[in-house]
Design a protein around this nucleic acid. Structure first.
Lengths: 412, 412
DNA sequence: ACTGTTTACTCTAGGTAATGCACGAAAGCG
DNA sequence: CGCTTTCGTGCATTACCTAGAGTAAACAGT
């Protein structure tokens, strides 16, 4: 692992921009105090970002007798980024401004049975990206970068979908295929990693070193961050928490193994539990996970005993699985994300919390914050766009150091 | 996580010394090629280490017509380090030379029922350290540093044993108490972290980024390394793999939970299995884990069906638990260490390997090497001494750059 | 208005690191 | 005794971060 001083610079650049994004208009002094960097360095980095037109000075803050503090904020019109979330049943594209606020979004459905070839998926990505960019008033070539999240295992550096079980893809050079249609920098990765990036920049992971972001949806997994940076593992497939063991020789899992976490706390697992508890329940919508989870959520809030039993039992499994993660990784914060967490997260987490003490070691547990994802909109497309933002930040800067902000044009 | 250029320097210093320790006498050129550092930088770092007397030039290598390459090696007489492994039933001290070869070792037994106060343990550490240093021909004050591994959770920076379940210690300021008797730098941590440090410097973890070292003994746990560095987690308690779930509502574990990995693959767990399979087996030595595991090992090699069944069943559990770790962490290498692995590791690993494919995802599994610990002697005291070595390396250097090795005193 | 005070920012110098390049060192070869 | 080859190191350069000096922009009291 070759480390260079450039890495420090880039990390500091990330950090400064993150603070500004998180705190809105903010003074240099405050950034310096928060990051522990010297004021000179912050001033330098801010100058760099100002010159790159990513920031602007937006006002002044009285400082009680002295020179007022200039407040810097992200120049939202500096450019646009796109984040693409490709899932089994849809392609979701969002266009963001440089403050990562959604400007436009487009979703196209996918029909898993008929649409599974790379060419078809690529066509959907390209067409929905064009449509979204159009709505945001920019040509696709005007974007600063595009991040794409696709399920499965990704060779990020090569831009290759190494293996996507849902479409049975093997070594599909997705980035190259997309590059034929899109002439801006492309970043490919998977939803777990996009999710953790979104939390690190905009969610509960801000300013934290060690983070686990649990994706609770149809599939289940964890995105991990270590020392403030996304952790990928040896082959970019760390975080497959959904396929760790929960019950020896338990339910079969779609991964081929038995007793995986996913088989118990993923949406199909929850449906199976509902079927076990009440085979004829009207809450059960065969073939429709979303509707079933929705029905469970509203029945739970209405006090329905079947829904309560399903939630309680699911929380029992979830608690054990979260405890495992806490014991192994000792993270500062664990975030529950994705659609099952959005719909059922609150009762699941409340009940799981009460059980965690039975399984997690008490000291790591006491030092771990467990929260629901608070990011509005789709964290995966946000995270994908953040890959593009990071890529852009890595490219800027260099020889720019001196006298970047000379003409101030101050009031009066 | 504040990163500074000093960290880079220290990391490079570690890396260079690691190569020299691993490869024996080696030329600067080779180090540069291996590490990717420029020859100038390597020369600079080597000069620094030469001036600190940690290295010496030991010979020359013909280079076919040109100036011969000078070979540098560790000057083993440069000083001594101590590593202390404190366990439930013994205190084991080893004195090492600067190449981390054992010069002397002393072991004192502990009687857990009578000796559990910090003062008693400290007395044992101090007395055995004095005895060992004496055998190595050095006063305890002549050591370059002492690393101490004690079980439980450690506040490394503060040198405090935060919690040690076996002695029911809470917040014992062990380093301060030891410092009253030992006037050299002291480093406190736990066996999991010592074990992974030993593997990173001297074992299967050399040159690897992401490593998991499994400790299979009475207790079970994992030491983790990420990006080539020990991973501690938020409160220095990452790696408690032994207390992750293997069987929902399974065997009670001494941690208070149920169904933990430790309860199935730790030595007491293996004994319990033997008792289940053959309650009257002569292999069973009640109250003596070591003898029982020894008996199992030799019976296994003699083809005994009971021992075979016990090993096979244990391997089933071990395979699942290792698969979990591979799926979550995607490490490059997994090392099986500690005394159960030493005695029974070969058959356990052979059988577990055959089962791993059923539980671990195939691509991460295919990229993970799983090996037995090849370190001779006690990896925990070696790792503890390595903490002291790292501390020493962090302190040296600074203004030393110029003309360090001028008088060469070349042959002829 | 003027002067001092306070606070914010920037510039310069200095320290640390890595590295490319050139030159001296140390061989072998004719 | 040059000539060639290959090492190793000093020096200059570049790229970081930081302390501290200096400058800018306010306010307060004469």
């Amino acid at each position: 692992m070759k480390r260079t001083s450039r890495d420090i610079r880039v990390a500091n650049r990330f950090e400064v921009l993150r603070r500004i994004l998180g705190a809105g208009p903010v003074a240099r002094q405050e950034i310096a105090a928060d990051t522990g960097l010297s004021l000179a360095t912050v001033s330098n980095l801010v100058g760099e970002l100002l010159q790159a037109d990513l920031l602007e000075e937006v006002g002044y803050q009285d400082s009680g007798g002295g020179r007022p503090r200039a407040l810097v904020a992200v120049r939202r019109s500096a450019g646009m980024l796109a984040g693409v979330d490709v899932a089994e049943t849809y392609v979701h594209v969002e266009i963001f401004d440089t403050a990562l606020r959604v400007l436009a979004s487009v979703e196209e459905p996918l029909h898993p049975s008929q649409e599974s070839s790379p060419a078809q998926i690529v066509a959907h990505i390209v067409s929905s990206l064009r449509a979204a960019a159009d709505r945001a008033g920019v040509g696709p070539e005007g974007l600063m970068g595009v991040g794409v999240s696709v399920p499965g295992q990704i060779d990020r550096a090569g831009g290759v979908s190494v293996f996507a079980p849902n479409w049975d893809w093997h070594d599909v050079p997705l980035r190259a295929q997309l590059a034929e249609h899109i002439g801006v920098p492309l970043y490919l990765d998977n939803p777990l990693r996009a999710g953790v990036l979104a939390e690190l920049w905009f969610g509960a992971g801000r300013g934290r070193d060690d983070v686990a972001v649990l994706t609770l949806g149809t599939g289940v997994g964890a995105g991990l961050a270590v020392r403030g940076q996304l952790y990928r593992g040896a082959t970019n497939s760390a975080g497959e928490w959904g396929h760790t063991n929960l019950v020896m020789d338990g339910r079969p899992c779609r991964c081929g193994s038995h007793g995986c976490v996913e088989a118990y706390v993923g949406a199909p697992g929850i449906m199976a539990r509902l079927r076990e508890i009440a085979p004829d329940s009207p809450l059960l919508r065969p073939g429709d996970q979303t509707a079933t989870i929705d029905a469970l959520a509203s029945a739970y809030h209405a006090g329905d005993p079947v829904a309560t039993a399903v939630v309680a039992e699911t929380a029992r499994y979830l608690a054990v699985a979260i405890a495992d993660l806490i014991n192994i990784l000792n993270p500062e914060v664990v975030v529950l994300s994705s659609w099952v967490a959005a719909k059922l997260g609150e009762p699941l987490l409340a009940r799981a919390r009460a059980l965690l003490g039975r399984h997690a070691l008490s000291r790591p547990l006491a030092n771990t914050e467990i929260v629901l994802c608070r990011i509005e909109g789709n964290p995966v497309s946000l995270g994908a766009a953040t890959f593009a933002l990071e890529g852009y930040l890595e490219r800027i800067g260099g020889q720019v150091t001196a006298a970047a902000t000379r003409p101030r044009g101050h009031r009066r």
